[in-house]
Write a protein that binds this DNA or RNA. Structure first.
Lengths: 325, 325
DNA sequence: TATCTCCATAAGCGCTATTTATATTCCGTA
DNA sequence: TACGGAATATAAATAGCGCTTATGGAGATA
């Protein structure tokens, strides 16, 4: 797979080399630390710069100093690599272990909405209940490593056999705008809006953020990032106090707890994009925990979502579909 | 830099190929989408499995299904790649004189209180701002791996050199009880309370939970766990709807957003136990981000904490000390 | 100015990933 | 149960990438 550099203008090794240069201060020292010769690092760095189209380090002065672009790459690369380094160890850890406890992971955008009903329901099934809020990816890996028994998230892990799946709800992604902004009706208007106003995004750590990124990429929309968050609350806060817009969902709007007049909602121009929250869990023959929790969650949401939306964003009432099997 | 696979048992292209296989369902289809031949993908996948030491897809059945390890890799890889895809476009932006990213981690119990002021302050220092909420431990490791520039948390990372530290606030742990329960005045009364009512605890993943556990252990108190959460909101929800008690802090009470009459607060009998929130950050010579963010956060809290507490729990007004250097 | 260190470039080469070609396995269907 | 088609694995050949050694130039220190 070493063909022409299609999509990624860098390799792990190159990023690693670059970081070594940042840490060590010189190319020679970095080469020593990496256990390769000096020209190897020199060339790698040069090609990295060529492919990125930017100088990364200013070698005119000594010791070499990072350019602004280099400083950014350092941030990004070191985050990326420390993330990558975790993957292999985690995969080795996938074994099985069982605890009597009932452990439930809930995606951030449903944490507040569901915690109450989950506590009530789960308390009747288990003596000990642990509930954690977080991102889908974290819950999924915890589920697969059996650190969780069930999770509410955006990934139904369809490829994994021997898991139970209970769909909870489907909802559209919508635009959320600062009050005063005119909702765009077409993609061109959306593009114009983005030229004048900041786009507040979910981070790529969240499934929601990944979904939205991919959708925008397919539409050829390339909003600059200015503000990013990994929770619904974070995304909506900046809208209330300035000129900006975000892509979010009705449930996220409810979860964020913003005031009714702080944000204006509108449909997302272009192709429809939705997300589905699914309960995924290890089968539990005795307690039937996945099924019972799913049904309780649905009942609770059925009773509360429309009512809350009618106060926050009447136009979105009916957009959230609580599912059944 | 294509020597023996030292540290990373995969390349971007291989992860991309694996994701294509996940999406398309078959190796052949993935190869078509990637514009390579089928054996290329087949071999790449096989070597990926060999290097990771795990089967990723079960090809015995058709269509192939992911193993648990494969599902985990899918999660991780897709997050990693969507993060990586953003890097190059961003670097082009930087050359147009934009300021680099500022990434801030905030402990869950201050997330809502601080997000607004942090967005306002950080936006003036950087063109891009990322704020994530979570647990202190996660932020600390992200800070050390440079995935974060500054963090607000309960750990000042005193052992790590070359970090700036700015104390934000100190507050006591207090008891929170379901309405109707009588606040215990002594440790014996607390023990009696625990015999009759459920103790809702913070999970051991959170610094707060670890602190409380240790304190209780020293006092010889051994409450059975029944319910545990890792966010302030989660801990207080069960109290509002049943007979139980928890140990929490004034800031957590504010953060949770519970109604004023849902919970009753009282001092914690026995030795005083407090916690201190500190801002820790990488030094930032140019922008002075840690100092400026700390000062803005203090000002904001100074203005808002007492006011909010007076509505929620008048007896706690004055218990939170906003610090200075 | 001399010297040391660091860096860039050039040439050669080994290795890796790709391709084409072919065998094998699995599934649906007659 | 036998057969056709599709998907996958394997083998051999090839091409390209990145490594090394060798060498010249540039900056810092005395």
């Amino acid at each position: 797979m070493a063909g022409p550099r299609d999509e990624f203008p860098f390799s792990f090794a190159e990023l690693n080399a670059f970081l070594a240069v940042c840490d060590e201060g010189t190319i020679s020292a970095a080469a020593r630390r990496l256990g390769v010769t000096q020209p190897a690092v020199s060339i790698a760095l040069g090609e990295l710069e060529a492919r990125l189209g930017t100088k990364l380090v200013d070698r005119a002065v000594r010791p070499p100093v990072l350019t602004p672009a280099g400083a950014l790459l350092r941030q990004r690369a070191s985050a990326l690599l420390s993330e990558a380094r975790l993957i292999a160890p985690e995969m080795r850890e996938i074994d099985r272990g069982r605890l009597p406890l009932l452990r439930i992971g809930v995606i951030d955008s449903l944490a507040r909405s569901l915690t109450g009903v989950l506590v009530r329901t789960a308390s009747e099934m288990a003596d000990e209940v642990a509930i954690q809020a977080g991102l889908t990816a974290g819950h999924a890996s915890n589920l697969l490593t059996r650190k969780l028994d069930v999770m509410f998230g955006l990934d139904d892990l369809a490829d994994v056999p021997d898991l139970e799946r209970w769909p909870i709800l489907t909802e559209p992604y919508v635009l959320a705008l600062s009050p005063g902004l005119t909702p765009p009706a077409t993609l061109d208007e959306l593009r114009a809006l983005a030229a004048e106003n900041g786009f507040v995004r979910y981070s790529a750590r969240s499934s929601t953020g990944v979904d939205i990124d991919r959708h925008l990429r397919r539409l050829g929309l390339n909003f600059p990032r200015r503000l990013e968050f990994d929770t619904p609350y974070g995304v909506l806060i900046p809208l209330a106090s300035g000129h900006g817009f975000a892509i979010t969902t009705p449930i996220c709007l409810i979860e964020s707890g913003v005031a009714p007049d702080a944000v204006v909602c509108a449909p997302l121009p272009g192709p429809r994009l939705t997300r589905t929250v699914t309960l995924v869990g290890h089968p539990d023959r005795r307690r039937r925990a996945p099924k019972i929790l799913a049904e309780a969650a649905r009942r609770d949401l059925q009773a509360s979502v429309a009512e809350r939306l009618s106060r926050l964003a009447p136009s979105l009432v009916g957009s959230v579909a609580i599912l059944d099997d």
